[in-house]
Design a protein around this nucleic acid. Structure first.
Lengths: 231, 231
DNA sequence: GATTTAAATTGACGCAGATCATAAAAAGAT
DNA sequence: ATCTTTTTATGATCTGCGTCAATTTAAATC
């Protein structure tokens, strides 16, 4: 059975975080000793683009966005549910700054792993390194899919993508709590708040979704998927 | 001196390919023994999105584009001058297909390295693995910059970006041969051929560039950069 | 509960840029 | 040199969607 490549603005991977699975007890110990756990409230900044990266992070609980900023403009690269790693692109040799910012969508728990401990792990355990390579590569593919979606699809397709992503990848159920504002949704789909409202209303009127102030429920995933595909 | 982050649709890195630098003679030997060199004409396909990746590639000579395809639409992720590696994202564990296509812009020479030899090198030499991680991470940052540019800038800024990229990163001179068609330029800037023509004419009329059928010359890089920055 | 502030909705308008159509120029083919 | 095909140029439309403005609704603060 061939699974065709589909670019869906959903920038969330399907695989669970597994890079720590095969580490020895001693290596896990090293990670532990060089980690701290921090709690963040909604809207707090996990890392700031351009600042020094002293650590790699693991989002243990919560939800966050990873985004680029420039002037007053920002672009969401990916939405990050738990449990996931962030900060890997700061591992570039000779440059230890974060290439993006990250901010929580809800109260979150983050494990900060000291970056030199992490690097030495990579340099001493080739197998672990390969896992990291694998994760970076997968992440690239995911972001590229979102790249395609945002540049090639128009508003209806992009918003459909966001809704499908939230239901299937983030909340993993058709009916999910609406913890994101219209502004958040608009930013995710890279469009204006007004367009987001208009399209949501249209989707609602056509019976594709149900919306109130607390929930969104997907009623017709097939139609929504079709809209996503035709762009 | 702080160097601000600037997102310029130019998806070409500044660093020379260096991942093979620190390999031992034996390791280099392994690479050699598991490599073949192939010549491609202009317009030939180096790898096809979705096909099995039996090798990692090094573009030794020439110029190529790396792009996503979907239906009849395509999105250039990066432009690849020599000497550069391509195919790394096919290193994902458990999936050995190319996540993108690549095609030459001109006659090119490519070294194909058998993927299992490459993988075993990573798994046996953690330092080499770290170099690969570094390259993947840098590549991600570059493509993200292009992502930002294509989604947030409008046509003038995007085309200015392409011209600056060609001059500074690809040909490394203000006056460079025009080996790309208007269609190629349009695709790079993600816009229609007609818009490309119109904007080039405008740039020419305003004395920013000189164009004829054989080359393009940048006359006012400052103005062009400004156009790129304001989007 | 009253008042302020923020978020969401809806309509009117404008414009960047794609598409369409046609012509001119250049490149290949015979 | 002639004919065909491809590439480039330019003007005339059309439209998706952002922006602006004005309400309505909801949430927050007192």
């Amino acid at each position: 059975m061939v699974k065709p490549v589909v670019f869906n603005g959903c920038s969330v991977g399907e695989n669970p975080l597994c890079c720590f699975d095969d580490l020895s007890p001693e290596e896990l110990q090293i990670i532990e000793e060089n980690s701290v756990e921090v709690e963040y409230k909604r809207g707090e900044i996990l890392c700031k683009q351009g600042s020094f990266a002293s650590h790699v992070m693991v989002l243990k609980e919560g939800l966050a966005k990873i985004y680029l900023e420039n002037n007053n403009d920002s672009l969401i690269l990916k939405i990050l549910p738990s449990v996931n790693i962030l900060g890997l692109p700061a591992l570039v040799e000779g440059n230890n700054t974060f290439p993006y910012s990250a901010q929580t969508y809800m109260p979150s728990v983050v494990q900060l792993i000291e970056i030199n401990a992490f690097k030495s792990l990579i340099n001493n355990n080739a197998h672990f390194g390969y896992k990291i390579i694998s994760m970076l590569a997968e992440n690239t593919v995911i972001i590229n899919g979102r790249f395609f979606c945002l540049t090639k699809k128009q508003t209806y397709g992009r918003l459909a993508d966001v809704l499908i992503c939230l239901a299937q990848r983030i909340y993993k159920q058709d009916k999910f709590p609406l913890q994101l504002t219209r502004k958040d949704l608009a930013e995710l789909a890279s469009m204006s708040v007004e367009s987001t409202t208009r399209i949501l209303t249209k989707f609602k009127d056509e019976g594709l979704i149900r919306v109130n102030s607390e929930f969104i429920e997907i009623l017709d995933i097939d139609k929504l998927t079709e809209i996503s595909l035709i762009g």
